[in-house]
Design a protein around this nucleic acid. Structure first.
Lengths: 221, 221
DNA sequence: CTCGCAAGTCAACGACTGTTTACACTTCGT
DNA sequence: ACGAAGTGTAAACAGTCGTTGACTTGCGAG
């Protein structure tokens, strides 16, 4: 489970330092020592852990071990644990922002379902949603989360009301309720795995979700 | 803020051990040393902290200091930090169960609004909702949370479908989506305080919420 | 009044946290 | 090929965590 190409490096540090066969030079695209590559690996592993277990519960040693590198690299590349978390959040922001640009009215429910389910191709989006709910206690980082949530609800409102129209607070509130539903379902599935929500498929969800979106944000006439 | 009669005991330990005036014997109903009273105080303070900051972030010393007692009492009365958390969860369960018995179809939206807002008289319910979302990492405790969530969604479904009728998974799923909305809104208000949701009043919420409930769980004919 | 026991405090423990310093290895420009 | 810069490791730091045992204090029965 949890796949990815995380394996790599593997094994215990200190044992078998010399590969048995010729180091297969052309086949492995990854050099043994590559800063940006290691940084990216750390970022992915940390995002998964932070999303699953929360900020306080996750330890830097957990992350480093899961990535197969030394703990000190976290401070080297991200200054601190908080810096690492902020980097995770930033990358989650980018993923979510890219996904929420130009959403069409008719596919909102489907989009929510995919986020909630974390199905196949959109594993990252699901993780990003979870990350939004995790607080590090740092006020500045919480500001970022607040800002993204607000911008997401604005996009949602605009997707219904039309691009140019002014989005008054009443409409925005309803959009935020939809957002709250998305977050709530994500939590319920992820950390509680409450049935039947936990075992629902995408086709199970789009029906109810479409009713919900239609009721809260009726299409403009 | 946060009121309650928590003050008491107050001050720094070690200073001013004798009250200046005559100890007002009849006025203060609380004896200075009372186990069950201290236990209850600890429980209330801990619930507030756990709900607001989560399990891992909250330290036993924080709780003890806020209650004005020594840290060791937590282990004396609740065995461990996890024991204290479990006790908080249990009392939250009772409060929520009592509140969700015999809910009438027409007042669901209103009930949700009150839980989300944590308005005045129902401060405890709001806290209980937050507690449901906090994980201690302990598997048995997570089982309790799962069980309560499930029973709450069943009550919700029954409130609409009628007491005797069988609640199939499709209806239960929709009830859980409503529950997810409640939890999501609670989170959004509590930890992110996203406007306009954060500054919404009860009358702002009941409209949209009633639309939502009606759309997801249409009244039985 | 006095003495026993419950209620509460104190100080310390071992474990674990994030972080840093000093060191070893690989890679690449010249 | 050689040395400097870059990449990764190991060990230890200081601080905080939850927990524990011995101690002190105050209430209430006799």
């Amino acid at each position: 489970m949890r796949g990815r190409s995380v394996a790599a490096r593997s094994a215990a540090p200190g044992a078998q330092d010399a590969p048995p066969a010729g180091a297969c030079p052309a086949e492995a695209p990854r050099r043994r020592r590559n800063a940006s590559q290691t940084r990216q690996l750390l970022l992915e592993v940390a995002s998964t852990r932070f999303a699953r277990d929360g900020y306080a519960t996750t330890t830097v040693r957990d992350i480093a071990d899961a990535a197969g590198v030394n703990v000190a690299l976290i401070n080297r590349y991200f200054t601190s644990k908080e810096g690492l978390f902020e980097a995770c959040l930033t990358s989650a922001f980018l993923a979510l922002k890219k996904e929420t640009t130009g959403i069409s009215r008719t596919r909102i429910a489907e989009g929510i379902a995919r986020r909630v389910l974390g199905s196949a191709s959109d594993e990252g989006l699901h993780e990003a949603m979870l990350l939004l709910l995790r607080s590090s206690g740092d006020e500045r980082i919480d500001g970022m989360r607040r800002a993204l949530l607000h911008s997401m609800s604005e996009r949602l409102a605009e997707a219904v009301a039309g691009p140019g129209t002014s989005t008054d607070d009443a409409v925005l509130l309803r959009a935020q309720i939809i957002l709250a539903t998305t977050l709530g379902m994500t939590m319920l599935r992820a950390s509680l795995s409450t049935d039947p929500l936990a075992s629902a498929t995408e086709s199970d969800l789009v029906g109810p979700l479409d009713d919900l979106v239609r009721a809260l944000l009726p299409p403009q006439d």
